[in-house]
């Protein structure tokens, strides 16, 4: 293990726990989609979640900001437990940003309006201030010149970068990514990954569902493998990729790495 890795590991061990998922179960009707999931994420930690289609990756991260409701177990985000209490849910959603596979930008609003909407209506910032913040983050994702366009006029990669900027405008403490590059043409994947890498370098706590193994190797502190609603294996990237323990992980890795 390199000294940098070692230092990073110690730093994370000392950091407070930011997300705590314990014994979480979830069902869709009869279907047991999450089965006793346990996961603790330290502040500033970068986690990549992978696994076969239908294994419950999206469901897990969507439980963290309550887009889906879990039926058993506890989820505590930044000290607040997710319950049916609407107040708690609102508090957590302000702290947690989310980026979707299909961007989900608001097509009737300009890029700038997409970014200022939540700061103005949720945080009640004055419009001028919200716009200044939005421009700062649009510069950060390198598309300030597109601010007055509508999402429909942008390329997929640009749209996804706007979606990231839109989330960042709420200054979240945690960012969730659900396959942010899967809907993109290959030549646009890099521009989005670059933005995510720079976010990671700034110390953002990130949970990222992705099959970009290069990204996992270079950015993740921990890689989690899920299958059929369970966390099968988790490890630091070097170990995870070079020395997988379970048969299912080996099978999965052989399938995606051989492409």
């Amino acid at each position: 293990m390199t000294p940098q890795r070692q230092a990073r590991r110690e730093q994370l061990a000392a950091a407070p726990i930011n997300i705590e998922v314990s014994h979480v179960h979830k069902w869709y009707g009869e279907f047991h989609v999450l089965r006793d999931v346990n996961l603790a994420v330290s502040k500033g930690e970068r986690i990549v979640i992978c696994g076969p289609s239908g294994s419950g990756k999206s469901t897990l991260i969507r439980c963290i900001n309550r887009l889906e409701e879990h039926q058993k177990g506890n989820i505590i985000v930044d000290g607040t437990e997710l319950t049916n209490d609407v107040k708690n849910i609102e508090v957590i959603r302000r702290e947690v940003g989310m980026v979707f596979q299909s961007f989900n930008l608001f097509p009737h609003l300009t890029v700038l309006e997409n970014c200022t909407l939540a700061p103005i209506w949720v945080k009640k910032l004055p419009k001028k201030e919200a716009e200044a913040i939005a421009m700062k983050y649009l510069e950060r994702v390198r598309i300030p010149d597109q601010a007055l366009k509508y999402p429909g006029q942008l390329s997929g990669g640009q749209q996804q970068r706007v979606a990231i900027a839109r989330s960042l405008c709420m200054s979240p403490k945690i960012m969730l990514f659900d396959e942010p590059t899967s809907a993109l043409d290959p030549e646009m994947v890099k521009e989005v990954l670059d933005v995510m890498i720079s976010l990671a370098e700034d110390g953002m706590t990130m949970l990222c569902v992705t099959h970009e193994m290069g990204f996992a190797k270079s950015v993740a502190d921990r890689v989690i493998f899920m299958d059929r609603g369970e966390i099968i294996e988790q490890n630091v990237p070097d170990e995870f990729f070079n020395n997988p323990q379970s048969e299912r992980t080996k099978l999965f890795l052989s399938q995606i790495l051989n492409h």
Binding site: E90, R93, N104, S167
Partner: peptide, 18 residues
């Protein structure tokens, strides 16, 4: 209206009426 629009709004913390 696609479900994604509702989810994006929820994820940003907008309340029902907003």
């Amino acid at each position: 209206i696609p479900k994604g629009q509702y989810e994006a709004a929820d994820a940003l913390g907008l309340g029902y009426w907003a």
